[in-house]
Simulated scan of single mutants.
Amino acid sequence: MLVRIVKMSFEPAKIPEFLDNFHQNKKAIRNFEGCQLLELYADKNQSNIYFTYSYWENDYNLENYRNSDLFKQVWAKTKPLFNDQPQAWSVDKIVTL
């Protein structure tokens, strides 16, 4: 299983716009072929930092999502809200207890 972790830093005044966009699209992202889990986290100490965790069956499914119209639409609305470069990691899940 592939886990995709994305760290995003927003202009504080633009957080409601980000959250609205996320909530409007979360079900479509979660139901995209190969997506098994989608979670959104807020940093406890920096209120403008958010993380998404998504679980994908494989690289192929993640790349299909990243090349989809859905991703392009969501990202086009999200990208202008950042106050720093987003960071993303694709990692292999090794152990769950």
Rank of each mutant, 00 (worst) to 15 (best):
A42W: 01
N31T: 11
V6R: 01
E17V: 15
N83Y: 05
K26D: 03
L38G: 03
V95F: 14
K7V: 06
K79L: 08
A88E: 08
Y50W: 03
L19C: 06
Q85Y: 07
T78W: 01
N61F: 05
K77C: 05
W56P: 04
L38W: 01
R66Y: 05
Y65K: 01
D69V: 13
A13T: 15
N67A: 08
L81C: 08
D20F: 07
A42N: 15
A88C: 05
P16G: 03
Q87C: 06
L81V: 12
Q87G: 08
D59R: 13
D59V: 14
S90E: 07
A42E: 15
N83W: 04
E63D: 11
V95H: 14
N67L: 06
A42S: 14
I29N: 02
I49H: 07
S68I: 07
E11V: 13
Q73C: 05
T96E: 09
W89G: 01
E11K: 13
E17D: 12
I15L: 07
Q46I: 15
D43A: 11
V6H: 00
F82K: 09
I15P: 02
A13R: 12
N83G: 06
P80D: 09
W75L: 00
L70C: 13
A28F: 06
E39W: 09
W75D: 00
K26R: 14
K7M: 04
K77E: 10
N61H: 14
N48F: 09
R66H: 09
E33P: 06
N67Q: 13
W56A: 03
F51N: 01
N31I: 04
W89I: 08
F10A: 05
H23D: 11
N48E: 13
V95P: 09
